[in-house]
Simulated scan of single mutants.
Amino acid sequence: MKKIQWLLALVLISLVSLAQAITLPGPVVSADWLANNMSEVQVIEVRTDLASYLRSPEFDTDKKTGKKFLVEVGGHIANSTLLDFKKVRVERLVDGKKIKHLIPEKADFEKLVQSLGINSDKPIVLVPIGQDMSDIDEALRTYWSFKVYGEDQVAVLDGGMAGWLSEGREFTIANSPKATGNWIAKAERKELIASSNEVAAASKSGKPQLLDARQPAQYLGLAKRPDVLTFGHIAGSKELAPELLARPSNGALYFWQKKTYDALLAANGLSSKGPTIAYCNTGHLASGGWFVMSELVGNKSTKLYDGSLYLWTLEGRPLVGVPLN
């Protein structure tokens, strides 16, 4: 009898804990919200420059106004954990070929997240550097990966660490290792991933619409990344350049409101509604296009082409662009 009472008590405690668990306000949280709810969430700082996590930030002073401003991000939010962005994308075998830049297998992603000390009992807030859209896309690619594997209690800090520091908030350069967490992948949402064949069909039919998330020079075929074998873009695609996706303020980048994104999409010949596939060079910058379309505009029929033009051109598929001399 006592054992049954003890089990019932544990169940009640668990239910109360779930009822009290905080709910994220949306896919993006402000620095104010994070500061007020720090003990209720788990913070992951997503970076390529790993040394910056334990390095002091650099500030300078405007000679005219005397105002201090951020020059280089350093340090981290207390009790956060560091995620090496290079581990977010891996090499996998696809049809017997080794393909780089892809989302890890479910078990591998689960192991990676657990190694950060992340548990399943609290929401997750991802923090980019926040000074360039490319580094913000590191957090957005991680966000997309969490979504693929069933995690809905995840958000991104608006302004990133740059915004946090520019607002004069507390930071630390101390390292605080964490025990292995118990986070579990709850699903495998393959509907968020577009295949090469889906992209090829969309290029011919115009549906879904194709969103190219690269800079104009790459879209037009004037320049290319080394991983992409030929110049240009997929026929029928429309560009949404990364520099359009956020607004600068005090040394940090912040997301626009939905109405601004709706207008930007329309100005670039893209619809804010209807099926969409976002792509870029390797699936990094495409995370920004996917996040804006799916999470901020609310178009849930948006996919990301994992591997993007690296995979597309590796398969010998064509691109179009302006004539080169």
Score class of each variant (00 low, 15 high):
Thr230Leu: 06
Met161His: 03
Pro57Cys: 04
Ala185Trp: 09
Leu102Glu: 10
Gly221Asn: 08
Asp121Gln: 02
Ala35Cys: 01
Glu105Pro: 03
Ser120Arg: 07
Leu34Tyr: 02
Asn79Ser: 14
Leu285Thr: 01
Ser272Phe: 08
Leu12Gly: 07
Ala201Thr: 14
Val199Met: 04
Thr61Tyr: 07
Ser39Tyr: 00
Met293Pro: 00
Phe85Pro: 00
Leu24Asn: 12
Leu296Arg: 01
Ala241Leu: 04
Leu211Val: 13
Pro216Phe: 12
Gly289His: 00
Gly75Asn: 11
Val113Gly: 02
Lys64Thr: 13
Leu314Ser: 12
Ser17His: 12
Asp132Pro: 01
Arg317Gln: 08
Trp144Cys: 02
Ser56Gly: 06
Val46Cys: 02
Asn182Val: 10
Lys207Leu: 10
Arg189Trp: 06
Ala278Phe: 06
Arg169Glu: 09
Pro323Ala: 07
Ser120Phe: 03
Glu295Val: 04
Leu15Ala: 13
Asn325Arg: 11
Arg55Asn: 08
Val320Cys: 07
Asp135His: 11
Ile173Val: 15
Asp152Asn: 15
Ser17Lys: 11
Lys259Ser: 15
Thr142Asn: 03
Met161Leu: 14
Leu311Ala: 12
Leu285Val: 05
Ala213Arg: 03
Leu70Ser: 08
Thr230Ile: 05
Leu15Ile: 12
Asn182Ala: 13
Trp33Ser: 01
Thr48Arg: 15
Tyr149Thr: 01
Tyr143Gly: 10
Gln209Thr: 06
Leu210Arg: 09
Ile234Gln: 09
Ser176Lys: 14
Asp306Cys: 03
Asn79Trp: 05
Gly236Val: 06
Leu210Pro: 05
His76Ala: 08
Gly307Arg: 06
Gly163Cys: 09
Lys238Tyr: 02
Lys63Pro: 11
Arg141Asp: 01
Gln215Pro: 07
Val292Ala: 00
Ala213Asp: 15
Pro208Met: 09
Ser17Glu: 09
Arg55Phe: 01
Ala9Cys: 14
Glu105Trp: 03
Lys204Gly: 03
Gly74Met: 08
Asp32Pro: 01
Thr260Ile: 08
Phe146Ile: 06
Leu34Lys: 03
Gly298Phe: 00
Gly206Ile: 05
Ser56Glu: 15
Thr65Ser: 15
Thr142Lys: 04
Asn268Ser: 08
Gly289Gln: 03
Pro248Thr: 07
Lys2Asp: 14
Gly130Asp: 02
Ile103Thr: 13
Ile277Tyr: 08
Ser52Arg: 12
Glu295Cys: 12
Thr23Tyr: 01
Val71Asn: 10
Leu296Gln: 00
Ser17Asn: 06
Trp164Gln: 10
Gln5Phe: 14
Pro177Ala: 06
Gly74Phe: 02
Gly316Cys: 07
Glu138Gln: 13
Ala194Ile: 08
Ile4Gln: 14
Phe59Gln: 00
Phe69Arg: 10
Met293Leu: 13
